[in-house]
Computed example of a mutant assay.
Amino acid sequence: MTKQNAKAYWKENIRYVIILLLIWFLVSYGAGILFKDVLNNIKIGGFKLGFWFAQQGSIYVFVILIFVYVRLMNKLDKKYGYDE
Rank of each mutant, 00 (worst) to 15 (best):
A6D: 07
E84S: 07
Y69S: 09
K75Q: 12
I18P: 08
I42F: 02
G32C: 01
K75L: 04
Y80W: 06
N5S: 05
M73K: 15
F67I: 07
F47Q: 13
L76R: 05
L26A: 02
G81V: 07
K78Q: 09
V38S: 08
A31G: 03
L22D: 07
N41K: 14
G32E: 05
L72C: 13
L22K: 02
I33S: 04
G32R: 03
L76H: 03
I64F: 03
L39D: 10
G57R: 06
I14G: 01
I59P: 03
W24K: 04
M73I: 06
L26R: 12
A54G: 05
S28C: 08
Q56E: 10
N40P: 02
S58Q: 05
A8N: 06
S58P: 02
V27H: 01
G46H: 10
D37F: 06
Y9R: 06
L76M: 07
K75D: 12
E84M: 08
G57Y: 01
F25Q: 12
N74S: 14
L76Q: 05
F62T: 11
I64V: 15
Y9W: 11
G57K: 00
L20H: 00
Y16S: 12
A31L: 11
M73C: 04
L21P: 00
W10H: 10
G45K: 05
F35S: 09
R71M: 15
V27I: 09
A6Y: 11
G57L: 00
N5Q: 15
K11D: 09
D83W: 11
V63G: 08
I33L: 13
L20I: 04
Y82V: 02
L34P: 00
D77H: 14
A8I: 09
T2R: 13
